[in-house]
Design a protein around this nucleic acid. Structure first.
Lengths: 191, 191
DNA sequence: CTTGTCTATGCAACGAGTTGCATACAAAGA
DNA sequence: TCTTTGTATGCAACTCGTTGCATAGACAAG
């Protein structure tokens, strides 16, 4: 078994709650998608493959007011495959930060021209942080949240705290980047 | 133009210093590879394509005691392509954290079984942090570092500070994850 | 003298991920 | 009525990225 992380992300999401490809795609825009993205194309393809392999069961669900859907659930072999994967070691992630490439590239262009772009990223990450914090209040720390969290909720919460920490760190770093760009711009005016 | 971030990472690296595919692969194990990874296969393929497209020039360099190499440099159209890309907006990155999938999956398995894996990641990130800090001392903050940094060095430094901040944040989060796993394990003993 | 390591390049095959397009039904609004 | 938005699924083509394998010269260790 190589990567296949999407397969496992789908298995986890379907164990948390069975659903259609469309619904999974929605979830990948929210919660689980905060740390693993996927398009609907990818999801439909993987669902089809896993169903053909017997890891998932499909149920046609007629709906009123909207097209029928295929609801997928995790079958016993799917759950076994997930358990096997959970016990395998995985490689620690390496970063993939395109903006960092741009920042280093700015040495061969006008560094000041990058300021607007960095500010745009700063806003995007600030929005994401606000979104995460709202979700945390709603589901875990607010008055409407379940009083004692169960194990699954504790785990979802700690993953969300990771997202929050990531956004805060990124925002602080982008402040550092902006200060650096301004400092360079002041010292060496644009060519 | 789609993603092509590797193309641009290679252009930046070759502008910083011309080199062969092999040398680039070495650099992708260090500095530039801290935030953008690539295997030698990918690098050779992209170098070939970019040279065919006239973005790079190749020079056969005979060497003694080792095989000849092809040294690539950025040609004018390559530099123009990089400048164009630097002025285009890019999407803020979304996370891709496989370990987070595992943590949520642990709700359907024994959470305590994940502790060793998380500890392994903790060690890997601590090692990476130590490595970054050593690089920072060597190149930027130590006594052997150039006294006033030029713009390019300032930009390299701020990118490295981003890597350092990322590793520190990740280590703190993994501490949080471990505490959570222990708390859950104490409350609900393994099935 | 054989094995292993380092430099150096590359092919072939596969799997992962993206983009564009297409279909179809329903509801809401202009 | 016509367009837009949302639900729901999917094909085809492409690019990106990984893995395994292969070659080849130089050097060092056993």
């Amino acid at each position: 078994m190589r990567g296949m992380a999407l397969d496992h992300a789908i298995l986890v999401s379907l164990l948390e709650m069975p659903g259609s490809g469309y619904e999974l795609a929605r979830r990948f825009d929210r919660s689980i998608g905060y740390f693993w993205t996927a398009t609907h194309q990818q999801i439909y393809r993987v669902l089809g493959r896993m169903a053909a392999d017997g890891l998932l069961t499909v149920r046609e669900v007629p709906q009123q007011g909207r097209p029928d859907k295929k609801e997928y659930s995790v079958a016993a072999p799917g759950r076994a495959a997930l358990t096997r994967w959970l016990h395998e070691p995985i490689e620690p992630e390496s970063m993939r930060h395109e903006l960092a490439v741009k920042i280093r590239g700015a040495a061969f262009d006008d560094p000041a021209a990058l300021i607007r772009e960095v500010e745009r990223h700063h806003r995007a990450h600030s929005d994401r942080l606000a979104h995460y914090l709202a979700g945390e209040r709603r589901d875990f720390t607010g008055p409407a949240a379940p009083a004692p969290l169960d194990a699954g909720q504790e785990l979802q919460h700690v993953v969300l705290r990771g997202g929050i920490a990531y956004e805060r760190m990124t925002i602080a770093w982008l402040d550092d980047v902006l200060a650096t760009l301004h400092r360079i711009g002041a010292a060496t005016p644009p060519a």
